[in-house]
């Protein structure tokens, strides 16, 4: 049986949407201020947030929005995190490059470099919510749910995981785009969207 989506979230144009409905709107038009005000709104009390790069902050906030639906009964290894994007860690790559471009002013920093791997975001979310299940990070030219819906469904059917965060968290020099969802096996309902590629395309485009 195809799993269904428990809840989903979009972060777009300084707004947070949960299940397609506006949850928070920031008057700030730049990402830095939006991240700050969104954090204050969600108020997770998690100081490590300030150390993260923008990509990790986006993924972290999306997970925070969905977290009331997370099944607390599950063991840590029963929830997976399978995410994707287009630009990997492009903006942070450019930041690290700035620190090494000038031989006279050479100052690479581990605090920046570590964020030049996209699965650090997966790690940040896993630490916050104690998710220890299957994890993977895919890169596609644009939002492409084909492979990851199939992959997550297979992990669920083979009973490797019972729940999963899936979706797309992208940050480029042009902007950002976040669509993340949570699904839990065995909670089938005709009311909820099915976790298929077509279904995820529809939800992705709902906003």
């Amino acid at each position: 049986m195809t799993p269904v989506i428990e809840t989903y979230c979009h972060l777009r144009n300084n707004r947070i949407f949960r299940d397609g409905k506006l949850l928070f709107e920031s008057p700030d038009t730049n990402l830095k201020d939006f991240l700050k005000s969104a954090y204050k709104f969600l108020n997770p009390g998690y100081a490590k947030f300030y150390k993260m790069d923008e990509l990790s902050k986006l993924g972290f906030l999306a997970a925070e929005v969905l977290s009331p639906a997370f099944d607390k009964e599950l063991r840590p290894e029963e929830t997976g995190v399978i995410l994707s994007n287009t630009h990997s860690t492009w903006v942070t790559d450019l930041r690290h490059q700035q620190t090494i471009s000038d031989t006279e002013n050479f100052f690479p920093s581990p605090a920046i470099f570590v964020y030049t791997l996209p699965n650090i975001m997966t790690g940040e979310i896993s630490i916050r919510h104690r998710f220890r299940g299957e994890n993977a990070f895919f890169i596609f030219e644009k939002f492409n749910p084909e492979l990851i819906t199939d992959y997550i469904n297979r992990l669920i059917m083979s009973k490797k995981i019972k729940a999963c965060l899936g979706g797309y968290v992208d940050r480029s020099t042009d902007g950002y785009d976040v669509f993340v969802y949570y699904l839990r096996s065995g909670k089938n309902s005709t009311q909820k969207p099915k976790h298929t590629a077509a279904g995820m395309w529809k939800l992705y485009e709902i906003i």
């Binding site: 791997l117 994890n135 993977a136 890169i139 030219e141 492979l147």
Partner: peptide
């Protein structure tokens, strides 16, 4: 050319593979 999806396309394109290349970047 710096983007990982493009690297996937370059390799798949060189060999004439018709499928969307899957690029995995998990450290």
């Amino acid at each position: 050319r710096l983007h990982l999806w493009k690297l996937g396309r370059v390799i798949a394109g060189y060999f004439g593979n018709p499928n969307e290349p899957v690029v995995l970047s998990n450290a």
